[in-house]
Write a protein that binds this DNA or RNA. Structure first.
Length: 179
DNA sequence: CCCTGATTCGC
DNA sequence: GCGAATCAGG
């Protein structure tokens, strides 16, 4: 409310400093601020003088970086447009039941605890977190389960059971899975 | 694969 | 000054 025309208004910078010192990563800050990419955040952070937050306290003897320069005749064999990832187009209605024989379910008859209140956003998602979609993907309130996922699986033990339901067990247990 | 920050460089 | 592109490490 001062001058949105400016990318880095005082308020923006203030928030940036706050979030950065708060421990948030650049991507998270960028997403929080909106309109800026994580690179922009990092760039600004460096320009502000912040950078080594919780890093090596030895700025000396730590720069053996051999200037890579930028030869125009070396555009690398890189041609993948990886830049935008704000849109998560995943099919929540997709029924993952094409597995003929999934050798899983190490837990025979265990009352799996439904991990509620652990829902996370796309950015809170970690590699070991359950990616079970919850809610409307088009909604801003869209979240993932976020519970600890089974190693090798994108879901937690609970949702893994739902996703990879054995045909034998599937024919009977047809309860509401709506989240 | 995903992510992270760091750096360089063109605008 | 700003941020994309790039690099390098986890």
């Amino acid at each position: 409310m001062s001058d949105p025309s400016q990318t880095w208004s005082d308020e923006r910078v203030e928030l940036l400093r706050k979030l950065w010192s708060d421990g948030l990563s650049a991507s998270q800050i960028a997403a929080e601020l909106g309109g800026v990419t994580r690179n922009a955040v990092i760039g600004k952070v460096h320009r502000l003088g912040l950078s080594g937050r919780a890093k090596s306290p030895t700025p000396a003897a730590s720069r053996p970086r051999t200037k890579v320069t930028r030869p125009p005749s070396h555009p690398m064999s890189h041609g993948n447009p990886t830049a935008v990832r704000g849109n998560v187009a995943l099919a929540a209605s997709a029924a993952p039941e094409a597995e003929p024989e999934v050798e899983e379910a190490p837990a025979p008859r265990e009352n799996v605890v439904v991990p509620l209140s652990e829902r996370v956003t796309i950015m809170e998602l970690r590699e070991f977190m359950c990616r079970w979609p919850m809610g409307d993907p088009t909604s801003a309130e869209f979240r993932f389960c976020g519970a600890k996922s089974v190693t090798g699986l994108p879901y937690c033990s609970y949702h893994a059971r739902i996703a990879y339901q054995p045909a034998t067990d599937r024919k009977r247990d047809r309860k509401a899975v709506r989240a």
